[in-house]
Design a protein around this nucleic acid. Structure first.
Lengths: 207, 207
DNA sequence: ATAGCATGCAAGTGCTTACTTGCATTCATG
DNA sequence: CATGAATGCAAGTAAGCACTTGCATGCTAT
């Protein structure tokens, strides 16, 4: 028993993905760019290369299409694994890893993030879901700082605020680069920032 | 020869501001909340307490109303004055001042910033104008770091990247607090962040 | 071969939107 | 008092919106 969707993916015309997925992709792309009220079902269908009626037969209505797509494309859980697997105990190495992973994951989620940011007045749940993983990461980073503090590898400081500062710095960087094109990511500016900011926080927090 | 607008502000009913200003306020509030395509001219007029026709007679069309309001409410030039007037040469004091001023100005501009962020696909010029002052601030901060470096008050580092990190950190903090209500600003979290982050960067950058 | 399902196409429904028009009302100013 | 500008009100227009219906077509699986 395998997934019911997209039986045609393995069909004769192999490069043709199924209509359902084409619609999900189209709605994310268009809503991220123009906003929910700025794009019509007609336009979504045309972008997906299907008839508008197919959209309604598959998803019932516009809102449900977007909600389905949002949940479908929202990657998750990668940040938690990070802390289980790859943390070394060396502050500089770890901050670098966290920064880089965060930027990569957020960039991959960028369209979903744009939608959550733009449409939170219509889809209250989006914002919450989009912030779930960054919030978890903040929590894990605070715990990490606490552990380092106990081992004498960190100065006396408010670990929660330090974690928040580090995450906000990365969040600001992400937002500023959110509209960069796929091909130019990560930009040299972003790469420089990641390297330099890890050094900065390491110097500031090392006893 | 004084301003042509709002003669009625000084009228008998003194607390009643003129229709034009009521419309400008309403469109900023509503578009910031619901997006340009999420709010109708009817709704804007109703919020402003005027007839919908008055909106069109005063501003011609919806787009012009928003553009006029955007430029009307976009505060400016305060960041530049900061560096001319209040810089002391003590790193910690200055970073604290910059952070606090930035947050205050951005919060005052928050509705305009929300619009620029949401509607940049429709109003290309908004994003540019909204980012003009933060960009100027980044430039000034870099110059400040350069000067401190020359005076031996800063470690050898890429001053531009350091300035960018500091500004991105504050930008991330601003975005996260953008939707906080007037009464609760600045939150205790934000205040803590401003204090702590100034200390962090001072420790990281002081020789 | 046949039944069933997904899809395309054309047309249409009812609603909302931005924007207009004509006329009556108010009101400060000459 | 008279004039003119700003506003309100009611009605209307043309277009676009989400969404529906009926029917024809083609592909899949039994």
């Amino acid at each position: 028993m395998h997934s019911l969707v997209c039986k045609k993916e393995v069909s004769i015309i192999s490069d043709k993905i199924c209509k359902r997925d084409q619609l999900l992709t189209a709605v994310i792309d268009l809503v991220a760019e123009k906003g929910y009220n700025g794009v019509s079902t007609k336009e979504i269908a045309a972008t997906a290369g299907v008839n508008e009626v197919t959209l309604f037969r598959q998803f019932g209505n516009k809102q449900n299409l977007l909600e389905t797509a949002f949940h479908h494309f929202h990657y998750a859980d990668e940040m938690t694994k990070l802390f289980q697997d790859k943390i070394t105990g060396d502050l500089h190495t770890d901050l670098l890893l966290i920064s880089r992973s965060y930027q990569e994951i957020m960039y991959r989620n960028r369209k979903v993030m744009q939608i959550a940011l733009k449409e939170h007045h219509i889809f209250a749940g989006f914002q919450e879901k989009a912030n779930k993983h960054p919030k978890k990461l903040l929590e894990l980073l605070t715990q990490y700082f606490d552990k380092m503090l106990n081992q004498g590898k960190l100065i006396e400081t408010n670990t929660n605020t330090q974690a928040l500062s580090f995450m906000w710095m990365n969040y600001g960087a992400f937002i500023s680069n959110m509209y960069e094109s796929e091909s130019s990511f990560p930009s040299t500016t972003m790469e420089q920032f990641i390297l330099e900011s890890a050094v900065t926080f390491t110097r500031a927090l090392t006893p």
